[in-house]
Amino acid sequence: MDRRQWLGGIAVVGAIGGFGCLPVAAAQAGTGAAGLPVVQVFKDPNCGCCTAWVQHLEKAGFTVQVSEVNDMSAVRQRLGMPAQYGGCHSATVAGYVIEGHVPAAEIRQLLATRPAALGLAVPGMPVGSPGMEMGPRVDPYAVLLISRQGAASVFARYPKKA
């Protein structure tokens, strides 16, 4: 077997192998297995509530890619999220920034309505938000829509009224 035949064989195997990995290819292209955009999460490697939030997103059908970082304030600054809206993790999805424990339902609503905005934020770490569950307790909190200029308006309130 000469070099040209060997390289041709490698190319064929690679092409065939690629068809079995469509979810990976889709994730790299920006959409996950459920047709939702991939969520890129930036979190501290030692934070358990961030991991629980990632699991919440995955249960809701999102494909999540996690990058562990040690300086979350630098991540927020790079993404353009004002410090006053900071949570314990940041994420990006379909051109939006997601800050803190934002429920998956609100991310879906954001993606469905596509407002002209920077993204969503749940400042701090409110008890009862996704990843911050402590039994039946749910402290009231707001999901904020953050404009590109840094202003906030209420996008949703929790707990939802029955």
Rank of each mutant, 00 (worst) to 15 (best):
V138P: 04
R114K: 15
A121N: 02
E133Y: 04
S147I: 11
E133A: 05
V122Q: 00
A142C: 07
I146E: 01
L120M: 06
G124M: 12
G128P: 08
P126E: 11
E133I: 08
G131Q: 03
S129M: 07
M134V: 12
R114A: 14
L145N: 00
V127G: 03
L144T: 05
P126M: 11
P123R: 00
G131K: 00
R137F: 05
G135W: 10
P136W: 05
A116N: 15
L145R: 01
G119W: 07
G124V: 10
L145F: 00
G124C: 13
G128I: 04
P130E: 08
L144G: 04
P123I: 01
G128Q: 07
V138K: 12
T113D: 09
P126I: 12
V127K: 04
R148H: 11
R137K: 15
V127W: 01
A117C: 13
S129R: 08
G135P: 06
G135F: 13
V138R: 09
L144F: 12
P140R: 12
L118Y: 05
M132S: 04
V122W: 00
A142K: 15
L120E: 06
S147M: 10
V138Q: 14
V122A: 02
V138N: 05
R148V: 10
E133C: 04
E133Q: 07
Y141C: 03
G128N: 08
R137P: 00
S129K: 05
P130T: 06
P136I: 10
P115Q: 14
T113Q: 15
P136T: 14
I146V: 15
